[in-house]
Design a protein around this nucleic acid. Structure first.
Lengths: 259, 259
DNA sequence: AACCGATGGTTCAAATAATGAACCGCACCT
DNA sequence: AGGTGCGGTTCATTATTTGAACCATCGGTT
């Protein structure tokens, strides 16, 4: 493990529920030597990736990450494009929507939108890190990922988030096959109970799935008619997002519902 | 210079007009050994900070920067808050507006908004890296920065972007003093000719200026009345932004126009 | 006021990782 | 065919990273 990788891995301990981390905490979390963490964080700080609070000297993510994100958005806009698409999709379906990107062995949610239509809704936080196997977004990505990548994900221990989570690799593989039939993934309560989630993959310029667009609704509201609405809207929105970011679906991707 | 710093410095060669860089180009730009660049970029790629294009294998910024930005936004929202404020400020003034953050010896623009009111307007790109001494945003930040930081900026060679750019440190220091009188900076043609730019500093929780909010207008349109409008709107918007991000202006910051 | 257990920060010999000149195969030009 | 530039690789040399132990300081407890 190179020094750079080690330093950058420290950034992964930041999370929505842990936005600030002190030196000692970070040392424990990372199982590194305190002096090492101190020096690495010093370098990350000098580069603007983290900054230190005045009072407790805890580290938090720095302004450089905003700059780099703005820079990436300037050449390959995903966030700005998806914001509008999420908004429309939420309005159309009346439910909570979100986009995620696959990154290593995790799926990271980037942005979300709510609908004001219903008082009860699925609530979300941006920048959540979730699993592939338990989420509709993750499964949608896996269904169109390299077989060897799927192998690497499914060969790790799979966490059972709820008692409905699929954790048997064979069952998951057959689920992926089903998803490829329709081009659309859905999970019922496999990440959070009472949540019925639908997702379509988002493709990059190289025809590979880079992320997913999803609609999450309370299971109680999910009638057959509502599912049809969501599926149709999601297909359209997914195609639009893939297109707007300069991506292209693979040739075998179903254009509409498989019969 | 540590290995981590070296690796992270490679990211600084990405710019709006250079979103993709090949290995050889990056080697030349950075004056490092090709093998070193190759290995460092490999580590950055494994961490998701950069990704490689399929065809020419050129590097571009990766999805991890979006994740980290979303993460920072979740705890300290600046982008999302400033977007609304920029929108309103553009509508109110009829001109182009933008926010920037000071970072090291440079000022980086994060986001901007246009007004549809006039056919001619100042155009901008996000994620531009500009100088402190030639921009109203940079001067607004400097006016409320640590004296020793000001020294470090003004002791470097100062580029003359136009023949109106202030490059004499003493002149700049007296300009900073003027800015502190009113709490508002303005430059006329010092970064780009024919552009009249106004800016107010944005403060963090520690009372230090972390960035600036600015209005840029064609000089031809800048009447005294229009300046009054802009100054008043900018003051209000700056105070709102500082407040919304949990920041606080220093005690001596002028609340309204100095008499 | 002495103690305790934290915290952030520092040291320096030993261990390890980074470095760079040269090289390879390849594609695209003349 | 020969030249040029590209991404990628090798390996002995070199310089950096590492980590156990240490220090100063803070806040709570006895």
């Amino acid at each position: 493990m190179g020094t750079v990788t080690k330093a950058l891995s420290l950034l992964n301990y930041f999370a929505p529920d842990r936005p600030e981390i002190g030196l000692s905490d970070l040392t424990r979390l990372s199982n590194m030597n305190k002096a090492t963490v101190y020096r690495l964080m010093g370098e990350l700080q000098a580069a603007g990736f983290v900054e230190q609070g005045e009072g407790d000297r805890a580290y938090r993510l720095g302004p450089q990450v905003l700059h780099l994100a703005a820079l990436r958005e300037a050449s390959t806009p995903i966030l700005s494009v998806s914001r509008r698409i999420l908004r429309e999709l939420s309005d159309e379906t009346g439910e909570t929507t979100h986009v995620s990107l696959g990154h290593g062995s995790w799926v990271q949610t980037l942005s979300h939108a709510y609908s004001p239509r219903h008082a009860t809704k699925v609530t979300m936080e941006d920048a959540q890190t979730v699993t592939y196997h338990a989420t509709s977004s993750g499964l949608a990505i896996l269904a169109y990922a390299d077989p060897q990548f799927v192998d690497s994900i499914l060969s790790q221990p799979l966490k059972s988030h709820t008692n409905l989570t699929l954790v048997d690799p064979d069952l998951i593989r057959s689920k992926l096959e089903q998803i490829r039939q329709t081009g659309l993934a859905d999970t019922l309560g496999s990440f959070e109970l009472e949540v019925h989630s639908h997702a379509v993959p988002i493709f990059g310029a190289d025809h590979r799935a880079i992320g997913a667009l999803a609609v999450a609704a309370p299971a109680a509201r999910m009638t057959a008619a509502q599912q049809d609405t969501i599926r149709a809207a999601l297909r359209r929105a997914g195609a639009a997002l893939t297109h707007r970011i300069g991506g292209r679906a693979p040739a075998d991707y179903p254009q509409s519902a498989a019969s």
